[in-house]
Design a protein around this nucleic acid. Structure first.
Lengths: 229, 229
DNA sequence: TCAAAAGTGTTAACCATACACCCATGC
DNA sequence: GCATGGGTGTATGGTTAACACTTTTGA
């Protein structure tokens, strides 16, 4: 069933740069391409937008189909439209970036595409198309945004220690932070709930576990409060 | 000459939210639609992306064709893809926002579309499609970005007084700024060149004219300097 | 008892804010 | 000489940045 138009139309795709954090590295979710072009290469999950489908729904669908990952914090990143970016012809891609609690996603759930894997952003394979550019754009956006929006919590388990949080910021921002100043600042915001729990099974003093108070943040935000690290 | 594809494809358009500043108001460039849908309504300049044309080139072309405006500072804003946003069918639009020196553009140059005009952002006509949403998104982006990137200068003449600059910030941010603190801060950055010239034809003490030192900013930026108002 | 990470305060430098008057110019 | 906006300094409070030791726990 062919579709005919008076003027030629570019193809429209979505791509997702999904970040995860495993207490050690910042990681990105990639899939291995089965088909040409770039068969065998690693690439960002993504695919064609369906006719009646909102863009964000398309990314979520592709992510689920290709990697089994769902329940992701997503934001639109940038639309890449260089006429040369895809050898098959004009393909414009709306890229999103996503943040995921790796603690709840390390198993890539059963799916038709099992060739998905997490790679440290510091050690990436060659990528298909212009996906290295997309990934770099997403990485820079994450670095910029994490400092003045509380999105870092999307990468941590619901309950986390202050050291985990600090380490996350240090990893994303690629610079060390002072422990006392970090704790002072983050606790002074009053956005963390002390869960009363402590770490389990660690071979040193167990740290307290905190949770991010999303509701309080939303209330403060309306009053003009600005989160900032 | 029809074009046939195996799967249906959305149409792809670009739209531009171009801001100007006239020492009084922040203004937006709109065109009056000649054709249905929304014939007679005001709308953002924009149109279909051609097959071999980069997205930004498409916005610049449409801007020139529809409004005669060229030589605009442009950044990609957001891609709007709600399936219901255009009554004609699925149309995905990549929106850009632009900044223009009104002092150099108040004459809308000769063009095929003469139905273009500047409107104060505080007093807009009803807009076609979802263009009010796009405009609102652009306005918020401008308010956010102007504070930590020196893009405000794109809205002023090459040579400007500190009062003009302050007034621009007050207009964009919609709040008053302290004159002495503003001058102190902006001059302390060392990014303004005193041109040695002064205002002409004013009925009060003439102010000094400054220029933004783009080169110095780019050099400082590389070293990690952050512009901030 | 050692290793490993948790937890905790103080000081000094800097920056942001609040605030009011004199100056130059044209009419 | 008056109206208009140009131009300037200081004091205060708050914020950031630098910095090191004690505590808890498990092995």
């Amino acid at each position: 069933m062919p579709h005919t138009y008076e003027y030629p139309r570019p193809s429209l795709t979505v791509d997702a740069v999904v970040f995860g954090f495993d207490d050690q590295d910042l990681k990105v979710l990639l899939i291995q391409r089965a088909l040409e072009p770039f068969a065998g290469n690693w690439a960002l999950p993504g695919g064609f937008v369906q006719m009646e489908e909102p863009l964000e729904a398309a990314v979520r669908r592709e992510l689920r189909e290709e990697t089994g990952v769902s329940n992701v914090y997503l934001e639109q990143l940038f639309t890449f439209g260089d006429p040369e970016r895809d050898p098959r012809g004009r393909v414009v891609s709306v890229a999103y970036y996503g943040l995921v609690k790796l603690s709840e996603h390390h198993v890539l759930a059963a799916t038709d595409a099992r060739n998905a894997a997490w790679f440290p952003v510091t050690d990436l394979p060659p990528l298909a198309f212009d996906h290295d550019r997309i990934l770099e754009t997403a990485h820079r956006r994450l670095q910029g945004k994490v400092r003045y929006q509380p999105i870092g919590f999307e990468l941590l388990p619901k309950h986390f220690t202050l050291s985990q949080l600090q380490h996350l910021y240090e990893t994303v921002l690629e610079r060390p932070l002072d422990k006392r100043n970090f704790r002072k600042k983050i606790l002074a915001m009053g956005l963390l709930i002390d869960t009363g729990e402590i770490e389990q099974d660690v071979s040193h003093r167990a740290a307290r576990l905190f949770a991010f108070n999303q509701k309080k943040y939303q209330a403060l935000e309306k009053k003009g409060f600005n989160f900032e690290i």
